[in-house]
């Protein structure tokens, strides 16, 4: 039996091994384009100037609507994308934020634009409390517990007479002319969205964010590496609830009414998940792109077909297709194949 040492190919592989080791130790060079979101923000901030030359309320509404989802999806991403805990109950924090600020507005006349951060804190406190309980389980069990949370909240809100029960509450509209009525909410929502995206970026690049990503890969290993996984998870839950709650607060006053069947919808939770998955879970640009895509798609469905059944069918279909063919989302898939355009690399 002859010895089959393949010397030529062997030394090639040994070289490759050495190169591989070096590559691992070198930090990957990243070229991100932070100028792009900043330019976008400046442009959007100037957009209400259009109101001087005509009525562009619909355009403002669309941007505001998208911005609200950018904030919610980016907030959701902190828990779902960074820490890997998929929640289908985040509509609860949207509702809690909306109702908290809305009730203050209805009782004391203080605008939600002022109380939104407070609403965020209330949502965060609730998130912290809920997280203490539900983050004990992971994977499918966690997802189910989040659905149960939404169901419980819906029943409670539907039956709580102090906040209007199932009929909800009407909020006083502001006294600006139709031309300018939307503008304060427009800026508020834009600011919340920008703040959320910036915070998500800061979180991702902090030691805390690193810990979250570690525990999303392997919780036991993360723990043995000295990460207080429980504290990290629960804090991530609270943080993600904070941003969703703020968005809810402003949204309530913008709509001028609060109703459980508008705020506590599983479709709203589903949209957050969908946007992150479609755009790219765990990336910074992903939820933003996902939100833009879904809102555009939604408008298209409503404009062409109208019926809400079709909207639900369409949302489900897009979600399924996205999951099957682009499980990493647009940003994730492009990044993995090395084809991510520089303008979309905000990480």
């Amino acid at each position: 039996m002859a010895v089959t040492l393949q010397d030529s190919s062997a030394s090639a592989v040994i070289e490759a091994r050495r190169a591989h080791n070096e590559k691992l130790s070198r930090k990957a060079d990243q070229t991100r384009a932070t100028w792009f979101p900043l330019t976008l923000l400046v442009l959007l901030a100037a957009l209400p100037l259009l109101q001087f030359v005509g009525n562009y309320n619909y355009v403002l509404h669309l941007v505001l609507f998208t911005a609200s989802y950018v904030a919610m999806a980016s907030g959701w991403n902190i828990l779902g994308g960074f820490a890997g805990y998929v929640s289908l109950g985040h509509a609860v924090f949207f509702g809690v934020g909306g109702y908290f600020s809305g009730m203050i507005l209805a009782r004391y006349g203080i605008s939600t634009l002022v109380t939104a951060p407070l609403a965020g804190l209330v949502a965060a406190a609730l998130g912290y409390a809920v997280g203490m309980v539900t983050l004990k389980v992971r994977g499918p069990s966690f997802i189910i517990s989040s659905i149960a949370l939404l169901m419980i909240a819906r029943i409670l809100f539907d039956n709580w007479h102090f906040i209007g029960g199932a009929n909800g509450l009407t909020l006083p509209p502001n006294d600006l002319s139709v031309q300018w009525a939307k503008v304060p909410y427009y800026y508020a929502m834009l600011a919340i969205a920008a703040f959320t995206v910036w915070s998500a970026y800061k979180i991702k690049h902090s030691k805390f964010g690193l810990g979250l990503r570690a525990l999303s890969k392997d919780e036991i290993k993360a723990e043995s590496a000295g990460i207080d996984t429980r504290f990290y998870k629960v804090t991530a839950f609270a943080l993600s609830a904070f941003f969703v709650g703020m968005a809810g607060a402003v949204w309530g006053e913008y709509l001028t009414y609060l109703r459980p069947n508008i705020f506590l919808l599983i479709l709203i939770s589903a949209n957050m998940v969908l946007m992150c998955i479609l755009g790219g879970k765990g990336t910074i640009a992903g939820p933003v792109i996902g939100a833009i895509l879904i809102v555009a798609l939604n408008e298209l469905f409503v404009a062409t077909m109208g019926a809400s059944e079709i909207n639900i069918l369409g949302t489900g279909l897009v979600m399924a297709i996205g999951l099957i063919f682009f499980p990493l989302g647009l940003v994730g898939t492009l990044a993995r194949s090395g084809k991510l355009p520089r303008v979309l690399n905000w990480d």
């Binding site: 998929v86 589903a270 998940v273 998955i277 019926a307 639900i312 069918l313 949302t315 399924a320």
Partner: peptide, 18 residues
């Protein structure tokens, strides 16, 4: 699969609603 079946549930709901 949880997310996929969630999407499927929405599709079935939309279809039946239609």
């Amino acid at each position: 699969t949880v997310l996929l079946t969630f999407a499927l549930a929405m599709m079935v709901e939309g279809l039946l609603g239609g």
